[in-house]
Write a protein that binds this DNA or RNA. Structure first.
Lengths: 207, 207, 207, 207
DNA sequence: CATGAATGAGAGTTCATTCAT
DNA sequence: GATGAATGAACTCTCATTCAT
């Protein structure tokens, strides 16, 4: 009751990428194992030789995405060879490049993580990893403020706003758009750096 | 053996709110008609007396959310009684208040619209409505730049960044958090206004 | 994506009987929900309106079978209007009639209970019910011995042997066989009663 | 990266025993080739170098079990060196020892044979083998009756009852129980022998 | 209008079986 | 011989949807 062998070996990474692609297009619950499998020329059943469940696939996607960007951002943050402002530029560039180069996985991290939130087992790890990434951004802002490089802002809200602005790129970026990823990163970094350096008087003066 | 139906007439708005709540928690595909129905003390079958399909429910949720915020934002934008800066403050406050007061519907607008994107019929309307809202923000920025109130920025990217920062509130806001919605709105508006007013020289000087 | 209504209401008892029938023919694991459903003119999905899972169906079958026979046997045992020997005749008749009249359910009790043994939740209840039935048989034997009606035997083994002999009927009985259920019951009761009354010397003399 | 295969040649008998073990625990349909294979340190695929199908495994298990006990019982029956009573004692002991020493295979013979009943090919052979065994028991009873050693009983029912009592041991026997296999065998043999020798009057006098 | 039963189309998952290595 | 990857069929269970009552 079975038949044919198949192509070459399928790499886990390829499956993760395929899963992310489908998750992005359909959402976790809307995605089917068959569709993911087809994307790597497998049947649904065969997928189970590589991942024990759909949920594990999501976990793998999220972990991959978070690890990748966290590693890079951490390197930038820990390389204390430069000013906080320049560090912020760098990590904005990393963040956006990550969203463009690994668009599917990055989008899954942003939008599909929620599907794990009611699974206590995995929830913890995911939330921890996500918070760790955010903490790195917070660290940069705080360092800049401590050094007098930035004006004091509410770091909590500021970092969330920055995160929101950067993550949102994943929603609207189109490869054939007007601007490249670098340009977008520069614009966004400019915006937030301007906000961090601008003398308070200018800002708080309402009309 | 059956009893009289307990509740009075069910208002469509209540169903929409219920649907939004479930969509937010489970995602559109993860939500079930039974769960939505239960939230308004109905059974799945009864829901069909009010909405012809699950998809129509989503359409209603999204339309409701977008109309509500668009109406308010439009009023603020068209009230040309004040500066662009103040207008931007106002719409930030509206945007965030909307996300807090109608948290479920707002979240659905942001995260579940995607589920309609592969349904050509509805897609157009949703995208149009969404773009119309964004156009209002763009309008404010452009007016401020034209008036010399703001420094020239890349309006496209700037508005997306602002949108991202504001929408992201829906992800992290907790009613019992440190800051109120107004405070959050003020902080975010401050940030973007600072960026819009800051003399370019300061910003563009890298290290 | 759905269609037709159907016949009259399906009684849970009918589903339980249908399930027992299929369980008997194919075994619990070999049985399919579709097959059970078909036996009551339903589709597999519809079965879930009546029983939440296949396992629950088995639980219901077993509970039904055990309750039915236990109730009858208990009545016979508690009716202390007669000798132990007569009581034993009566419960043998009940046991076998139960296996003939409710052949499918009875067979399930005997052969499919095992499928529940690795489900701790249900295991307890099933084992308890089963042991309670056996205890009734034991009670009869013990009463007879205490009354001097029966010679002393190892009650534990004796009851198991009796149970085995009676249960085994479910394996070999054919409605079109040479003997009726009553006749079979009489033969088996005769056998075990003879054993209980025979002077020990006769038995223990080997050759 | 792979290592040398660890084990020496796998004996078919070991696989049969492993299969029986799993069959007993899970039932034929509940058992998986992977689980059976794992029990002999193989993978599912490798099992097919030894047995062409799961069904063949079951056939082998049943045949092994039936052959083994049949051979021993036949030897005891054909050794006409003793009385029918003593022969019956011997075969009861053999039957039970077989169920204890080869508990898994014996249980499979009793409970899993059913899985072959809808496979015409194999059905015949299995049923024939099973009936042949039963015929040996019948032979002993008939010889005893013919010799006047036993009172006349309905041989058909009597043998089924004996079989049931003996087979049932496989359900309840625990190695750490109160009685040894020999003791159980003696008790059961005592019971049936008593029934066979008891003067009819004693038994047939009901109340 | 409300309901519950029914449906049928999957969805995720399992598994016996095959086969290239 | 052994292995692991692959397959496809089947299975349990879910769910949007329909409709008689």
């Amino acid at each position: 009751m079975a038949r044919k062998p198949a192509a070459q070996t399928v790499h886990p990474a390829a499956i993760i990428e395929a899963a992310a692609t489908v998750f992005r297009r359909k959402g976790y619950h809307g995605a089917t194992m068959a569709e993911i499998a087809a994307a790597v020329n497998l049947t649904a059943g065969s997928l189970y030789h590589h991942f024990p469940s759909k949920q594990d696939l999501l976990v793998a996607v999220l972990a991959t995405g978070l690890e990748r960007i966290t590693r890079e951002v951490r390197a930038a943050v820990e390389a204390e060879d430069t000013s906080a402002a320049e560090t912020l530029r760098r990590i904005a560039a990393i963040h956006i490049r990550s969203q463009i180069d690994n668009a599917n996985i990055a989008a899954a991290v942003i939008f599909e993580g929620r599907a794990l939130l009611d699974v206590p087992d995995v929830r913890e790890q995911f939330v921890a990893q996500r918070d760790a990434l955010e903490a790195l951004y917070r660290q940069v802002i705080e360092r800049g403020i401590a050094a007098g490089e930035f004006r004091p802002v509410d770091v909590g809200v500021f970092v969330k706003a920055l995160f929101g602005a950067l993550n949102w790129v994943s929603v609207w970026y189109r490869p054939d758009g007007r601007l490249s990823g670098e340009e977008i990163a520069r614009e966004i970094a400019d915006t937030f750096l301007a906000a961090l350096r601008c003398p308070l008087e200018q800002t708080s003066l309402g009309e």
